[in-house]
């Protein structure tokens, strides 16, 4: 997992003095270099590799085998790109991703926003680990929602796709009411500070001409703060790779596929190997 790319800051938030932060317990400084380009430096002066993408600065403590993933849909010129801003959460970075992949909690955690009783049933959907891209994908996910997006006027059945292209990043594609046939793109990029502390960087690429940037940001922040109160109160803190003390059901298939993929790769930073 040390060779993966991780988000460590907003491109728009870079300063010359820089921001001190942690990546997998290593202190790093993220700053704008003399030419304005981002620099990430460890405490002992080592310069780390950089990618600028999706409004964020990405880096790695190791040697990434491939380039950071892409999201072609996000390149559409009419998309509104939204840097939501960082939220610190006292939880495993892997728990943050697992929660993002979950829809069964919508009626209870995001009541009357992303879901509501009695529309709680989670119908069968498809999940697979795509061998070639080496990514987890969930498709044909559907859920009835009273107010699916800031731009939605009434309840609709929203369709979703979920994608995990790297251990602590996830991309959600959801049906876009003003543009039938297109997907709104909502991302969670998670910076692991330690195994039980992370900085979450949400990011979006939407078709929405009507809602102000402030409202779009507030909406996503509200959703995420509701999730935070869940994330900070789950036992055990690390993500179990053995579900022996849990009761996953078919509705949890995306979470289980994510855990399988982590297990397959030996991505265990923030994971619990034995059921506690």
């Amino acid at each position: 997992m040390i060779d993966a790319w991780y988000p460590v800051g907003l491109i728009s938030g870079l300063t010359r003095e820089g921001r001190e932060t942690l990546l997998m317990e290593q202190p790093i400084t993220v700053r704008a270099g003399k030419t304005g380009k981002p620099e990430v430096v460890t405490a002992d002066g080592r310069s780390l590799p950089i990618v600028e993408r999706f409004g964020h600065v990405w880096t790695s403590l190791g040697t990434p085998e491939k380039d950071l993933f892409t999201i072609p849909e996000a390149d559409h010129p009419e998309r509104v790109l939204v840097d939501v801003g960082v939220v610190r959460v006292k939880c495993s970075p892997l728990r943050a991703v697992e929660n993002f992949l979950d829809i069964a909690h919508f009626p209870f955690v995001h009541t009357d926003i992303l879901g509501a009783e009695p529309h709680t049933e989670v119908e069968k959907y498809d999940v697979k680990i795509r061998e070639e891209e080496d990514e987890v994908w969930a498709t044909k996910v559907k859920f009835f929602q009273p107010q699916a997006a800031k731009s939605a006027e009434e309840g609709i059945t929203t369709e979703y796709m979920y994608r995990v292209p790297s251990p602590t990043s996830s991309v959600l594609y959801k049906t876009c009411p003003p543009r039938p046939g297109e997907w709104d793109v909502i991302c969670l990029f998670v910076q692991p500070l330690t195994e039980t502390l992370c900085d979450v960087w949400p990011w979006m690429a939407l078709f929405d001409e009507d809602t102000s940037m402030t409202d779009l940001i507030h909406f996503q922040q509200l959703i995420f703060l509701q999730d935070r109160s869940i994330l900070e109160n789950q036992i055990p803190a690390r993500l179990p790779l053995d579900p022996g003390m849990e009761t996953p059901t078919r509705a949890d298939l995306t979470s289980i596929a994510y855990r399988r993929w982590l297990k397959q790769h030996g991505y265990t930073y923030g994971a619990e190997l034995v059921a506690q």
Partner: peptide
Amino acid sequence: DALEVGCLLGPIDVWV
């Protein structure tokens, strides 16, 4: 179905 989902992961020392 839930048993199948759980067994897809199983204990740490198996790969299903």
